[in-house]
């Protein structure tokens, strides 16, 4: 009788960062690692696996691995590749089975997934061609405001009256922000305006799928308190953030890997 392997590896190769996770049968995370994807998806995946090996002190060659994310096909050591939609859904379900909608905002992609009671996606929407409504948008705005991406969200929360930033096109919004700076708006208000515009964009995407509560938010942008505040307001809901929200896709992939039959 085929048996389930005792460990699983998930590698999520995003356009900005690559994440890897090693779990055991109990679902306990034994090792995890995150690095910038850089120019080579393949190399960053290899780097991650090396690190898992060091952290866990195990021979990983026999452990099934599933790759996901934008560069999922570049991971040569993966057994199979599954899209980030399925992996995120399964990943967040393992952490909180109540979640019915997942909003993941990554570096260059954002997605909204409706999750069934079995943890599988039942519907999803992805952002369109451009970087509007992705982490990249906030990154560019942080640069313009001469602050770090880590501080941008905290800055936004200090706002009294958010500036009006109507565009979510990264190029247009950039010059709008420059215009607001020129008009003498304070940086906190501008930062709040930026987050509000982005939250509105993600809310539209969410309504296309149909928001069901409870809602979780993952991806690097989930760590940004300013974004969480404005998105929560837009959707009129509390947003649940899992531990290590960047790892949700990798975790889902690891669970899928462990469930593959040997």
């Amino acid at each position: 009788m085929p048996s389930q392997p005792s460990h699983g590896i998930g590698i999520d190769i995003g356009s900005t960062t690559t994440k890897a996770i090693l779990i055991n049968t109990e679902g306990t995370i034994i090792a995890k690692f995150l690095i910038a994807t850089g120019a080579s998806a393949q190399k960053s995946a290899e780097r991650c696996l090396d690190e898992l090996k060091v952290q866990s002190q195990q021979d990983l060659s026999k452990i099934p691995a599933i790759s996901t994310g934008y560069g999922r096909r570049q991971a040569l050591n993966a057994t199979k590749s599954v899209t980030e939609i399925t992996c995120h859904s399964i990943g967040v379900h393992s952490q909180n089975p109540e979640i019915r909608t997942l909003i993941d905002v990554g570096g260059q992609d954002s997605k909204v997934i409706r999750i069934g009671s079995d943890g599988r996606p039942t519907d999803f929407e992805l952002n369109d061609k451009c970087s509007a409504g992705t982490g990249r948008f906030l990154e560019v705005m942080a640069q313009v405001l001469e602050t770090s991406i880590e501080d941008l969200g905290t800055l936004a929360l200090q706002a009294k009256v958010p500036s009006i930033i109507s565009s979510t096109c990264t190029v247009f919004a950039e010059s709008e922000v420059i215009g607001r700076i020129g008009a003498g708006d304070n940086p906190a208000n501008i930062a709040a305006g930026v987050h509000k515009a982005m939250a509105a964009k993600i809310a539209t995407l969410s309504h296309r799928v149909g928001v069901r509560k409870p809602i979780a938010i993952t991806g690097g942008v989930a760590l940004n308190p300013g974004f969480r505040f404005y998105l929560g307001k837009q959707l009129d809901a509390d947003l649940w953030v899992p531990e290590g929200p960047q790892y949700t896709g990798a975790l889902g992939a690891a669970i899928l890997a462990m469930n593959t039959r040997e």
Partner: peptide, 8 residues
């Protein structure tokens, strides 16, 4: 993703 979800 569509095919994975459809199958699920």
């Amino acid at each position: 993703s569509f095919l994975e979800t459809l199958t699920a």
